[in-house]
Simulated assay, not measured.
Amino acid sequence: MTSPSRLTDRKRDAIIQAAIAEFRANGFEATSVDKVAARAEVSKRTLYNHFASKDELFAAILDILWESSASEPRRAYEPRRPVREQLIELLQSKLAMLADDNFLALARVAIAAALHSPERAREMVDRIGQKDNAMLDWIRAAQKHGALKAGDAAQAYKQLECLVKGVAFWPQLAMGQPRLTPAAQKKLAAASADLFLSHYGV
């Protein structure tokens, strides 16, 4: 006999998969709870038992897809290793995440949803920012050990993000350009690391 908890888990998974499909196909505004429930083959009441609102459901999906695409282990700063070598590895992990199909698809939906609600945009950015802090932590640790110049780590992180996302995220997201090949990702990681270290290196 199937236990109630396993049935509940299966229904929750069905809701999530249905919502991903609806959001990807129709965008945030055009996706309704009714459509998600129908695709998941559950009642609206069941859906609301798991997620209090469409916003909460969307936020849960972003979390799930973020976790699945950001599967690379966090890398702590290693004082005995060359700083350039470590930075390139971090950037290559980030570039692999940015090229993930699910990540790009949901990023498009998230941005479209944010255009209709600046408040929602801030919430999404905050949620992603809380998870996407491995690079910032690494920069702070490198500064603490004297491998990078002291200063505003958050500002340095933003500048590094722009070097990467300006080539390997925004063109693909907004203009439909093809994702970078692994070879191109490796080349961009090295070039971005060198440009960053030309200013922040010691």
Score class of each variant (00 low, 15 high):
residue 2 T to A: 02
residue 2 T to C: 01
residue 6 R to T: 15
residue 9 D to N: 15
residue 11 K to N: 14
residue 13 D to T: 12
residue 16 I to H: 08
residue 16 I to G: 07
residue 16 I to C: 12
residue 17 Q to F: 11
residue 20 I to P: 01
residue 20 I to E: 14
residue 20 I to K: 04
residue 22 E to V: 01
residue 22 E to F: 01
residue 24 R to C: 02
residue 29 E to P: 03
residue 29 E to Q: 13
residue 30 A to G: 00
residue 39 R to I: 03
residue 42 V to I: 06
residue 43 S to N: 06
residue 50 H to T: 02
residue 52 A to L: 09
residue 54 K to F: 02
residue 54 K to L: 06
residue 56 E to S: 10
residue 57 L to T: 04
residue 60 A to D: 10
residue 72 E to P: 02
residue 74 R to Q: 04
residue 75 R to P: 00
residue 77 Y to R: 05
residue 78 E to V: 12
residue 79 P to C: 09
residue 83 V to Q: 05
residue 84 R to N: 11
residue 87 L to S: 05
residue 89 E to V: 11
residue 90 L to N: 13
residue 90 L to W: 11
residue 95 L to H: 09
residue 97 M to Y: 09
residue 98 L to T: 06
residue 105 A to P: 06
residue 105 A to C: 00
residue 107 A to G: 03
residue 110 A to E: 00
residue 122 R to F: 08
residue 127 R to C: 03
residue 131 K to L: 14
residue 140 R to N: 08
residue 150 A to W: 02
residue 152 D to C: 05
residue 157 Y to W: 08
residue 159 Q to S: 10
residue 167 V to K: 07
residue 172 Q to W: 00
residue 177 Q to F: 09
residue 181 T to P: 02
residue 183 A to G: 10
residue 185 Q to E: 06
residue 192 S to H: 10
residue 193 A to W: 04
residue 193 A to G: 08
residue 197 L to S: 05
residue 198 S to K: 15
